[in-house]
Design a protein around this nucleic acid. Sequence first.
DNA 1: AATTAAATGTTAGATTTTCTTACATAAAAC
DNA 2: GTTTTATGTAAGAAAATCTAACATTTAATT
Lengths: 134, 134
Amino acid sequence: MAGSEIRRNMPLFSIGIVMQLTDLSARQIRYYEEHGLISPARTEGKKRLFSLNDIDKLLEIKDMIDQGVNLAGIKQIYNVKKQQAAMTADEKKQAEKMQNELSDAELRKLLRKELLRAGRFNRNSQQGDLTRFH
Amino acid sequence: MAGSEIRRNMPLFSIGIVMQLTDLSARQIRYYEEHGLISPARTEGKKRLFSLNDIDKLLEIKDMIDQGVNLAGIKQIYNVKKQQAAMTADEKKQAEKMQNELSDAELRKLLRKELLRAGRFNRNSQQGDLTRFH
DNA sequence: AATTAAATGTTAGATTTTCTTACATAAAAC
DNA sequence: GTTTTATGTAAGAAAATCTAACATTTAATT
């Protein structure tokens, strides 16, 4: 599953298509980029080109937005995910301990407010559903 | 495999991307369309939007061109394919018989000239290879 | 070999899409 | 009741694509 990652990161789609596929406005998509949630590639002429992964992520974001999570929350979630992905198995155990003890105050506040608001969360697979497209 | 057909026919790609993916010039792509080999969708503003199937077909065309088949030959090949696809099993038997007897002169000429020029043909799977992209 | 036809390149001007920036507004947070 | 957040909207510029025409090269025909 090495080549598949490349393929899913290949910049292929113009913003117009992504709008249709995600039902997001151009404004929304650019705003999410502005806040670092996605980083679509660019053509020489600076037009955005989105990958399948970008679209997946936008669908995830849309889901979270629909569930009332604000951008700050979404950012934190991605930060957490990223850290976890970068951690080896036993680093994770360490982190779990830390999480339960002295995680920084702001993160705790956010996580409590955004994530623990009912079990509406993790209900669905961590991944935006793009199976209908390819 | 019903939905997958829909997905593969979904108009998603601008001509710029298709150029990169196929290594064909815009002129070539438009020329092949002009001659009915592909029929990409259009945006409201008349810009072409290509599907995965369109791209596959262009890769097939490119292969055939590279092998020295001219557009007339490619057209015939698609005509034959299309007919075959539209035929039921026993219609096919019928057709095989006919093929071996009284196919029209021009088609014979073309097929002999273009198709039977060595076994360079059918060497590769009938399908443009797009696996690297999705 | 000369001529015609097929396939592609190139250019020009028009149109469409996307870009950035700025201001406007509704909803949410404080 | 302000501020902040998320999104809408508009304007002007830049990029990508469009069609149509003519130019060039390669292949086929006579």
